[in-house]
Amino acid sequence: MARIIVVTSGKGGVGKTTTSASISTGLAKRGHKTVVIDFDVGLRNLDLIMNCERRVVYDFVNVIQGEASLNQALIRDKRVDTLYILPASQTREKEALTREGVEKVINELSETFDYIVCDSPAGIEHGALMALYYADEAIVVTNPEVSSVRDSDRILGILQSKSRRAEMGLDPVREHLLLTRYNPARVEKGEMLSVADVEEILAIPLLGVIPESQVVLNASNQGVPVILEAESDAGQAYDDAVARLLGEEREHRFMTAQKKGFFSRMFKGG
């Protein structure tokens, strides 16, 4: 049985797709057969970040509607050969994701994959609900600012009440907090919430802290999951997060401002 992980946030633009790309790549790099599904029907982005947009023939909705087989739609990553991408449809309606259809696809993927990473769209509407419904675990991506924290809190409530695990009275979805765009210097100046603030409000275990970095933007633009930028802070932070997801104990890094050479280190990987 595959472990099904949803990457979600409620709020848009906090780094869900970047995180989905990096976490799935990180899991696959460690030898786990992993598929990442883009649930953002109509606003598909994952294929761009994974640099496979030119290889999309069929998509998630085609598979749900029986117009293509799963094997026809899955795109194999060129860098990590245990990684597959199931792109979203750019032209269909979100309602094309039916619960039965999604279940069918996830069950079929479960037979051959170790990890299924679901990249959720923003919001708490149908697409987001479908992305989290079958999840065993959730990575809640949060930026260190109040509105993002509030939306994460909202999505945590939905995970507890509207996921399959909640509806069937199974063990609850395991929740992980991933703090992205973290800028320790700005936290020290009081311009951002600190890790401790966010942890205190959301009260879920911390999976990782990804520092704000130009590398993330550059990597996205070039279609490289930032975790592959192994020299960069952000890449290493994602690698730590994947290790923790797999049960490894790793100390949290990149949480304090570097006094010297901070920017040079940030740009080195980019």
Binding site: D153, R154, G157, Q160
Partner: peptide
């Protein structure tokens, strides 16, 4: 015993 989240 669980947090009561926003919207709940």
């Amino acid at each position: 015993s669980q947090p009561v989240r926003s919207g709940q």
